[in-house]
Amino acid sequence: MPKIAFTPALRRFLAAPAMEVEGATVGEALAAAFAVQPALRGYVLDDQGALRRHVALYVNGRPVSDRKGLGDSVGARDRIYVFQALSGG
């Protein structure tokens, strides 16, 4: 199963533990993580389900291409990392 981990910056607001999740796409993997921690969704995705403008999501060290549809595929050995992008001062 893909592994998903979240920036420690989120710990100030809520629990966001790393986990192994079911899913063949980034969107499915995120949905599985949000099933464990529902409040996390609003921190990562906007109201329309796209990655927030200042949130970055990498798979195996590379940024995903589909930030709106979250359709990038992920495999059983892939590592997903969610972290903050540049956002002013």
Binding site: A9, L10, G42, Y43, D46, Q84, A85, S87
Partner: peptide
């Protein structure tokens, strides 16, 4: 108004 993580 969290810069990265949206309005809370």
């Amino acid at each position: 108004d969290l810069g990265h993580f949206g309005a809370k």
